[in-house]
């Protein structure tokens, strides 16, 4: 059994280790630390361009040659997808800068030099993730119309549901455009979609319950705005129906497990997908096969 050490995240790679007073750059703020990458909020060129900094740190358990090869491949894969999608007019964060060569960093304690990983700077998309938007909407619906889903003819309720359906069609439309551009996302959950411009004033998970701010005076949850796809860390270029169908399946399951009151409307996502992508027919057929197969993914989440 190996002993436990206190973990400190690795230092930021160059050039982000300069935090001097004369630049407007505040030190990048760490937002999330996944298995693959660390995400920071910072800016690009000047404070006028808020940016997300994604660092793929070196993985010391890997052979250094393999480590560099994988880190480079993956940061480039993501950067290429973003750049391509911007050119194709798909709503994704724009690529600002990328360093795939990786950096040599000096260990503060030992003075030893080692490979510090690669980074990517992209446009910061302001808004709430769809997971939060839908959760808020579901909460609103529950408060206003109770848990009885069979009540018909409630005009306001119907109007709310129509807004949600429109929103879901726009989500499907964004995914359709993505697939039409020949890119698959690879991890299409409601946490990887942002409704641009919204600000529900919702605290991050783990910071307690959502607060009632940021909605309009009536307490409606804003569903208008552009749907932006984010986190292309597992994305790739593919023209296989199977890969596209799996993207949709993952999204469907994300709705199923996270948004029980909205799951029933998932057909609207597929409707929006159909309308925005000409190759949708064979993908949707394939989706049925993927659903049947179900595999172990049905145990996830």
């Amino acid at each position: 059994m190996h002993t436990t050490h206190e973990y400190t995240p690795p230092p930021l790679p160059p050039p982000f280790h300069h935090h001097h007073q004369t630049t407007p750059a505040n030190p990048p703020t760490l937002l999330t630390q996944g298995a693959e990458a660390h995400l920071y909020k910072t800016h690009y060129l000047s404070a006028a361009h808020p940016a997300a900094l994604k660092i793929r740190p070196s993985k010391p358990y890997r052979h250094p040659i393999l480590d560099r090869r994988l880190t480079r491949q993956r940061i480039l894969q993501e950067a290429r997808c973003l750049a391509k999608l911007v050119r194709e007019g798909v709503s994704v964060p724009a690529l600002y800068a990328v360093d795939w060569e990786g950096q040599t960093v000096t260990d503060a304690d030992t003075g030893a030099e080692r490979y510090g990983g690669a980074w990517l700077l992209m446009e910061w998309v302001e808004g709430d993730v769809v997971r939060v938007v839908v959760r808020e909407w579901e909460g609103y619906m529950l408060r206003h119309f109770g848990d009885d889903r069979d009540v018909d003819g409630h005009v306001e309720r119907k109007r709310e549901e129509d807004r949600m359906k429109d929103f879901l069609r726009r989500i499907g439309g964004a995914v359709g455009k993505l697939h039409a551009a020949g890119v698959i996302h690879g991890d299409l959950t409601t946490s990887n979609l942002i409704l641009r411009g919204t600000n529900l004033g919702v605290k991050k998970e783990g910071e307690g319950d959502a607060v009632d701010e940021g909605r309009d005076g009536l307490g409606h949850v804003g569903l208008e705005g552009e749907v932006v796809l984010i986190d292309f860390g597992l994305a790739g270029q593919s023209v296989q129906d199977e890969d596209r169908a799996v993207d949709l399946y993952v999204l469907e399951r994300a709705f199923g497990s996270t948004h029980p009151r909205t799951e029933g409307f998932f057909a609207e996502v597929l409707e929006g997908y159909r309308a925005s992508y000409r190759g949708s027919v064979s993908v949707l057929k394939r989706l049925e096969e993927v659903r049947m197969r179900g595999r172990k993914k049905s145990m996830l989440g």
């Binding site: 750049a83 911007v86 050119r87 600002y96 800068a97 990328v98």
Partner: peptide, 16 residues
């Protein structure tokens, strides 16, 4: 805007 962002992407990826 799209042209500009596409150009930034091309600059970032040159040599990849």
């Amino acid at each position: 805007k799209q042209l500009e962002l596409s150009v930034l992407g091309a600059i970032a990826l040159r040599g990849a």
